[in-house]
């Protein structure tokens, strides 16, 4: 069993870094460097918020990319459910994307808390946007916990796919909560729907580069994490095969 799993691991290790991941990684580094320089030194401070506005260059992109991650999880889950062969690659992308999404959503809440302390005067308020965002985070932590419950790979994929397709419905609730209810959180500045972007030009440019940077980081992390999950699944399958073989041998010995 040991030799079988190590052979499998070596095969996967050779495939971890590819030209695509290197390109995406390089794009992430360049755009993130732009965001750091632009966010800290090039863009102006805000007339009301002062330098606190610079937190926006992390807060907003991480929120958008967390939404993207959970949507990718839902799409990959739907692909797994709908595909005839139930290719496990879809399930691994779903799991990897949810993991990265949870990290980004936690970053959103953390940076939002710091921003809120400086501008609102409080780290946290039980307002609709903050509460629904916290609930979304807890939902996806639950999704990851369900993935770790055990059972076969197919069982894991099926139950987590169903949860992913339900959980993604929370995203419109989070995004539109500031329009549906009165909220301490401000309304959207860029995705406001009326086409009027209420933001200084260099601030908007840095914000959009931040979105590209965090999206590339997300893609890079998901590609690598999916491959690591593939290795874990291969090890789990080989262990299962070995256990079945041992059991078969025992049964044969008894006869």
């Amino acid at each position: 069993m040991t030799s079988a799993s190590s052979t499998t691991t070596q095969t996967f290790t050779a495939k971890v870094a590819t030209p695509t991941t290197r390109l995406v990684g390089a794009m992430a580094i360049v755009s993130m460097a732009w965001v750091v320089l632009g966010g800290l030194f090039v863009t102006p401070s805000d007339v009301n918020q002062g330098d606190a506005v610079r937190i926006m260059y992390v807060h907003v992109p991480t929120a958008w990319v967390a939404y993207l991650a959970f949507i990718v999880t839902a799409i990959a889950s739907a692909c797994w459910l709908l595909s005839r062969k139930h290719a496990m690659g879809f399930d691994r992308v779903a799991g990897a994307s949810a993991e990265v999404g949870v990290i980004f959503m936690a970053m959103t809440l953390l940076s939002g808390g710091l921003w809120g302390r400086i501008t609102w005067g409080t780290y946290w308020a039980w307002d609709p946007r903050l509460t629904t965002t916290a609930f979304l985070l807890v939902t996806y932590i639950g999704y990851l916990a369900v993935r770790g419950l055990g059972g076969s790979l197919e069982q894991r994929a099926r139950r987590s796919a169903v949860i992913a397709l339900l959980a993604v419905l929370e995203i419109p609730l989070v995004h539109f909560s500031v329009l549906m209810w009165r909220s301490l959180h401000q309304r959207a500045s860029v995705l406001s729907g009326d086409g009027d972007i209420k933001m200084d030009g260099s601030m908007l440019t840095t914000l959009l580069v931040g979105v590209i940077g965090f999206t590339c980081t997300f893609a890079w992390l998901v590609m690598h994490r999916s491959r690591v999950l593939a290795m874990q699944d291969a090890v789990q399958s080989s262990q299962l095969d070995a256990a079945l073989q041992d059991r078969a041998s025992e049964s044969a010995g008894l006869k």
Binding site: V47, T119, W120, G121, S189, M203
Partner: peptide, 13 residues
Amino acid sequence: EVKHSNAYVADNA
């Protein structure tokens, strides 16, 4: 709690 707007205006505007 301060409720800031969704408009971001440069201090040097």
